[in-house]
Amino acid sequence: MASYIPVPRDLTKVKSKVAFNLTKRQLICFVIAAAIGVPTFFLLKKIGNSTFAAMGMMIVMMPLFFFAMYEKNGQPLEVFLHHFIQATFIRPKVRPYQTDNYYAALMRQEKAVKEVEKIVSESEKKRHRNAPGLVEGRPEKSTSNHQRRSEK
C-alpha cells in the first residue's frame, strides 16, 4: 500500500523547523526555561526533597512553555494577552457605537467656512477703517512727482 503525506494548502501556516522539530521561537523559549528551571531545581532540592524541587521547577518553567507552544487564531500568547489586558483593564467597558454622519460633517464644514469668511471680512473692514490715505474704503489719488511737474 502507498502511504500519503498531507500537504497543507495554505503555506502561510507552515512554520520552518530549526532543530529537534521545533521552531526558532519554541527553541529559544525552551532554552530560557531550562536556564531558569534547572538552577531552581537545585536550589529547591537543598531546601526540601526532590518532589518539592521538581514541582517548583515545573511551576517556574510552565509560563515559558506556554509562550513557546500556545497559539490561538495565529496569534502567539503575548499578543493574545496584550489584547486581553487592553480589552479588560485599559479600555472603557462601555463603548457606545458612534457614527459620523456625512451630512452632519458637511454642515459642520459649511459652518466653519462661514465663520472664517466672517472673521476675514471683519478684519478687512478694520484694516480699511484704520489705514491712512483711504477715503471711504478707497485709496486716495496720489500725485506723483511727474504729475506735479507737468502741472507747473
Score class of each variant (00 low, 15 high):
residue 52 F to W: 02
residue 56 G to W: 03
residue 52 F to G: 02
residue 71 E to D: 09
residue 29 C to D: 00
residue 76 P to V: 09
residue 46 K to E: 13
residue 129 R to D: 15
residue 37 G to P: 03
residue 25 R to W: 11
residue 70 Y to R: 04
residue 34 A to I: 06
residue 26 Q to R: 13
residue 138 R to Y: 08
residue 72 K to V: 12
residue 68 A to M: 08
residue 57 M to I: 06
residue 71 E to F: 10
residue 32 I to K: 03
residue 134 L to N: 10
residue 127 R to Q: 01
residue 56 G to F: 01
residue 68 A to G: 12
residue 72 K to W: 15
residue 47 I to N: 03
residue 51 T to S: 11
residue 90 I to F: 04
residue 76 P to K: 06
residue 43 L to I: 07
residue 117 E to F: 05
residue 135 V to F: 14
residue 85 I to L: 15
residue 97 Y to P: 10
residue 125 K to H: 01
residue 48 G to E: 13
residue 88 T to P: 03
residue 71 E to W: 12
residue 38 V to G: 02
residue 107 M to S: 06
residue 120 V to R: 06
residue 61 M to V: 06
residue 97 Y to V: 13
residue 43 L to K: 05
residue 108 R to S: 15
residue 112 A to D: 15
residue 45 K to M: 15
residue 51 T to L: 14
residue 122 E to P: 00
residue 103 Y to A: 11
residue 86 Q to E: 10
residue 99 T to V: 06
residue 47 I to M: 08
residue 90 I to Q: 03
residue 52 F to V: 01
residue 33 A to I: 04
residue 104 A to V: 09
residue 124 E to K: 12
residue 31 V to T: 14
residue 47 I to D: 06
residue 136 E to A: 13
residue 39 P to M: 04
residue 64 L to Y: 14
residue 55 M to H: 01
residue 68 A to I: 05
residue 46 K to L: 10
residue 92 P to A: 07
residue 66 F to K: 00
residue 66 F to Y: 10
residue 84 F to T: 13
residue 88 T to D: 03
residue 116 V to N: 11
residue 103 Y to G: 10
residue 45 K to W: 13
residue 83 H to S: 13
residue 126 K to G: 11
residue 142 S to D: 11
residue 63 P to Y: 03
residue 89 F to H: 07
residue 64 L to M: 12
residue 115 E to P: 02
residue 42 F to P: 02
residue 84 F to I: 00
residue 102 Y to A: 15
residue 118 K to H: 09
residue 97 Y to L: 15
residue 29 C to L: 07
residue 54 A to R: 04
